[in-house]
């Protein structure tokens, strides 16, 4: 399963490296989101500094919808996914591979986005360890839930509309917990004992397990 997962992840990342969708489309989109947040709220530094963690994670959430949609679309176009199954690739491996590939893309996006947040909103950043740990688990949770739901919604003509409706309520705890964990981190609480981090770990583990269990049924169903 792990070998299959790595193969799928390498394949997807290679496709991404050649097509550069994340770099050319999703990253600029995330920056646009950061800018229009400043329009919607107040540009006074106090406000933006205060809500910076929430806005950051909201931008990540929006971007993740596009990323997971694309990761699954690679296989549903021309029924490539059926081909993989015929080759005998493990469905759990496909799931994990997709999660890994989306994770790598999202994590890189988050690094650029954080730079954007620092420049545009100017929050005081501290607690790097907590920030990093919560970002890792939040991203895993987002990817695992996202890939599962994206596969559930695939095959629908209204997929682009259906996916956010399905996914956003499900990952709302991630948005909440990641925002709170980052707020704690920004307040210089760098301890890893943070309850929000624990919630993020639970979410990531639960959705990785659910995805690995159900993915084959969704693919073959």
């Amino acid at each position: 399963m792990w070998r299959d997962a790595l193969l799928i992840a390498t394949k997807d990342l290679k496709i991404e490296f050649r097509s550069k969708v994340t770099l050319n489309l999703i990253l600029p989109f995330a920056f646009v989101v950061l800018i229009i947040f400043a329009f919607a709220l107040d540009t006074s530094p106090g406000t933006l500094q205060k809500v910076a963690p929430g806005l950051f994670w909201l931008a990540v959430l929006f971007s993740s919808i596009f990323s997971v949609d694309r990761a699954v679309a690679i296989e549903s176009d021309d029924n490539a996914g059926d081909g993989l199954l015929v080759y005998g690739v493990d469905p759990g491996g496909i799931f994990l591979g997709k999660v890994i590939s989306v994770f790598v893309q999202l994590f890189l996006l988050e690094i650029f986005l954080l730079l954007g947040v620092v420049v545009l909103y100017g929050p005081k950043i501290g607690g790097w360890l907590l920030m990093l740990a919560s970002a890792l688990f939040a991203t895993i949770g987002l990817c695992a839930a996202g890939v599962t739901y994206s596969q559930l919604a695939s095959g629908s003509r209204a997929k682009q509309t259906l996916l956010p409706l399905l996914l956003v309520p499900v990952v709302s705890p991630v948005l909440l917990a990641a925002t709170k964990a980052w707020q704690d981190a920004f307040a210089a609480a760098s301890s890893l004992e943070d309850p929000w981090l624990r919630l993020l770990i639970v979410f990531a583990v639960v959705y990785l397990a659910l995805g690995a269990i159900f993915y084959s049924s969704i693919l073959e169903g």
């Binding site: 599962t148 739901y149 559930l152 399905l166 309520p169 499900v170 709302s172 705890p173 909440l176 917990a177 709170k180 309850p195 929000w196 919630l199 639970v202 979410f203 639960v206 659910l210 159900f214 049924s217 969704i218 169903g221």
Partner: peptide, 28 residues
């Protein structure tokens, strides 16, 4: 059959999600 499998999974995941959502909101 396909619809049944997909919606069963979605229904089950939604149900499992409820305690997590609740816990996060309670803490919030």
């Amino acid at each position: 059959h396909q619809r049944a499998v997909r919606s069963s999974i979605a229904g089950l995941i939604a149900f499992i999600d409820v305690p997590i959502v609740h816990q996060s909101v309670v803490w919030w």
